[in-house]
Design a binder for these strands. Sequence first.
DNA 1: ATGCCTTTGTGAACGCGTGCACAAAGATAG
DNA 2: CTATCTTTGTGCACGCGTTCACAAAGGCAT
Lengths: 253, 253
Amino acid sequence: MATGRTHRPATRSRGIPEATVARLPLYLRALTALSERSVPTVSSEELATAAGVNSAKLRKDFSYLGSYGTRGVGYDVEYLVYQISRELGLTQDWPVAIVGIGNLGAALANYGGFASRGFRVAALIDADPAMAGTPVAGIAVQHTDDLDRIISDNGVSIGVITTPPGAAQQVCDRLVAAGVTSILNFAPTVLSVPEGVDVRKVDLSIELQILAFHEQRKAGEDAAAEDEGAPPMRATPAGRKGPDGDMPAVMPA
Amino acid sequence: MATGRTHRPATRSRGIPEATVARLPLYLRALTALSERSVPTVSSEELATAAGVNSAKLRKDFSYLGSYGTRGVGYDVEYLVYQISRELGLTQDWPVAIVGIGNLGAALANYGGFASRGFRVAALIDADPAMAGTPVAGIAVQHTDDLDRIISDNGVSIGVITTPPGAAQQVCDRLVAAGVTSILNFAPTVLSVPEGVDVRKVDLSIELQILAFHEQRKAGEDAAAEDEGAPPMRATPAGRKGPDGDMPAVMPA
DNA sequence: ATGCCTTTGTGAACGCGTGCACAAAGATAG
DNA sequence: CTATCTTTGTGCACGCGTTCACAAAGGCAT
């Protein structure tokens, strides 16, 4: 069980709470919009509503970065944009490799939100030899066989996995072996990575399932038992446990 | 400020913590995999590692659902699959409409993970008249003008927004007016919705930015100031605040 | 039937995140 | 220069989520 860790960054990140880090991009986006409208300063109240958060939370978040901001006035937009960008590491160029050029991979390759934030799609990689050379979003797809070299040559440290679930772990291992230390995983798989490698997971169907839960709570509850097909009471398919007739514990709740 | 709320479900959801709900799909996936391998029972320890979580957390999560599980043995896989599915509302059919059939919308329409979880893509909607009628993932794209009727006719209560950011709020309003009460938003926009409507947000570039932050912490820190272009010290572009010469507070940290 | 062994279910402690509420800080007007 | 007004920055309290650790519960062997 040496390589079990997943998803939690081990290093607590120099005092800035993880929850705050997750909100910084939100602030940055709102600030960028203000900057484009040439708004010079903004109060915590205004910026908070623009970002969809509480103003107290926003101020506390900023306090972790330092005392940017002028009492009685607010925050200087340009200055704050720069500070947050720097804190997030967006002042440097991040070459990104996308592995698995299916529908989703292609969509990500075309996604504009990356380039505008300092992320550059440096390579597209797929296991299908037929795709090799095909341009997607203006970039030629390369074959998995060359993964190692591609990662090294481009200095890629962030990899995006959009492969089928069965291939995800293998691709992940190869990426890590090639030097990738941050992975954004779209495959519905739990990835095992060595210490020091960060994995973030985006699962499209999970989000829908969470919505369905709340949706059921909203609409349902009154129409409680709709049709109610027979719950699979087969706690003992054939193998173990109970040759003692039927299972009584079918309706525990 | 009547329609300000976003993202937080107001109803606390009958005692099941939000964090637990968010993990149920994870457990469900792991259990489904076990089920396909015809594994009859599983211990909290095994299931926890398969789902990538702590075993104590898993047991506590399940305790909110009720006392399914047998001490000394573990959990019956099939039974648990059913219970979690029911709790999440996946035993019923959820017609989903996707609005904005660009690269991402098309990718989602083709995504297999939806259908296998009880979600059915009932309609694809786009504002481009040229796309109307075009089949995507076997479904003909319909025009935004008919959005209202499409939602009603199909009984859609969950909408997915994959439009450009500028159109997101408008589409959102129309979806809500048509009866949608849950929205999965892929556009980088803060949506305003009335009370009772749930919004979940998936932002691809935010995830990358969070990774970049940790990446910078890992690799950087020693190579602290790389090239360091001039930080925008223009705290006063022209308008307000300070005709008092230069700003001293350029390097507060 | 009895005792051992495994695994669940949960009480309790702890730590993180959130929100309140206010004092300190600075701008602005007189 | 003084008073007033605005807005930040933060100490504090509270609640949620996580984790530990163990008693209760059940299976299984003898």
